[in-house]
Design a binder for these strands. Structure first.
Lengths: 223, 223
DNA sequence: GAATGTGAAAAGCTTCACAGCC
DNA sequence: GGCTGTGAAGCTTTTCACATTC
């Protein structure tokens, strides 16, 4: 495998392409044009071709891309051909919903442990996953060979949890707590702040109300 | 109010600043430097100053920014001084968790209706919100004056739900269904794909395993 | 003819570095 | 002395347009 130095922007789109290709494959498509795949992924055809070109030459001019082989190549490239073990810290509403989320398992992410500070929630087994006291975080994570962690705790304790995860050797973290977290270099952190998303919508909605639409293109995503 | 044509990137950071300022205010801070505020928001000081400069001149050279007034200004600018009415479509695990999420209410987003296709889930009142059959979507949305909607349905029906929301007059949508949705111009759509986030982590984790770290900076967010 | 792959141009965004002000 | 506000520089990302291949 080459080392094609992908941009962050490209990396963030590859999973979308994989999903779209998987849907196309399920519908029985054999080949797909950049035009068509791009449309289903919500990007421009040029964007898609450029992204794919960083990975290699997959298409056939005049024809398009072979769905199955492109799917497998990108999936392999993203590391989706193996199973990943995931731990969730914080077993509240959100943590519980994430623990049972089918979408994770379908894509190869298995939730192998859930942690909570509340002794009441420990051991209970509603979705088939065992819940542990957060005091045992390090040992359970190492014992279960956890690859990635999800933080779904209240904001107040999220940074401390992140520190402990890093200390336990976790290098990939997805954060749902509504505040920016700091992690050492080498640890990859991604954050999803639900209220922030709503507040961004609020901004554009407010703009609309003030009839200043002429001066602002309402965007479709892209931070 | 001016019409300062904010970039998408800036808009996506303003809610973070608001949160950080709110925390600082609660801790009793009167003024804050760009240095300090930037650190707590996880951006560079230059970035922060540039972002704020688009909104006006708020700082005092040699001193910093007055916490309260900056907080109010940005919050007002984002439309966070009013209450917004939100509907959630899809009352499964995730929809239920979102319906009860305290973070929304604290930031002024009140969930006034939940919809589901399953008659079993209709009418039940576990979190204080009434659940309606999705057939009544349009009338309930108009009656309750819903400003924004959240899609938390399975992927298969998400596009159809989006279409109905748009038809009912909703112009701001947050999508959790794991596929790209299309909406007409003028409607603002933001999407959070949980599995995609994990797959991006998977990529960087895989890279790490292949010892190609030298060639790739592990990023901290930013798509 | 049809669709990819890709340099080059354009747009968007972040960082720099320093003048200006308290 | 300290910190903001901001042009200019630098970097990233997207779009364009077309040569190339089937």
């Amino acid at each position: 495998v080459k080392v094609p130095q992908l941009s962050k922007a490209t990396v963030s789109r590859l999973p979308v392409y994989v999903d779209c290709l998987a849907r196309l494959a399920k519908e029985g498509a054999i080949v797909v044009s950049s035009q068509e795949l791009a449309r289903s992924a919500g990007v421009s055809a040029a964007q898609l071709r450029k992204d794919l070109s960083y990975l290699g030459d997959f298409g056939t001019r005049g024809v398009g891309y072979e769905v199955q082989s492109l799917l497998w190549y990108i999936a392999g490239y993203l590391g989706l051909t193996r199973q990943w073990s995931v731990a969730i810290v914080g077993y509240g509403q959100l943590g519980a919903a994430l623990a049972r989320y089918q979408g994770f398992l379908e894509k190869g992410f298995q939730v192998v442990a859930v942690f909570d500070a509340d002794p009441q929630k420990v051991g209970t087994n509603p979705g088939g996953v065992e819940a542990y006291p957060v005091q045992n975080l390090r040992e359970v994570i190492q014992e279960k060979k956890v690859d990635m962690a999800i933080i779904a705790t209240p904001a107040e304790v999220a940074q401390e949890v992140a520190n402990q995860l890093v200390a336990a050797g976790v290098k990939s973290i997805l954060n749902f707590a509504p505040l920016p977290l700091a992690v050492p270099k080498g640890v990859v952190l991604r954050s999803v702040d639900l209220a922030t998303e709503m507040q961004i919508l609020s901004f554009y909605e407010t703009l609309r109300g003030e009839h200043q639409m002429s001066s602002v293109e309402t965007p479709n995503q892209s931070d």
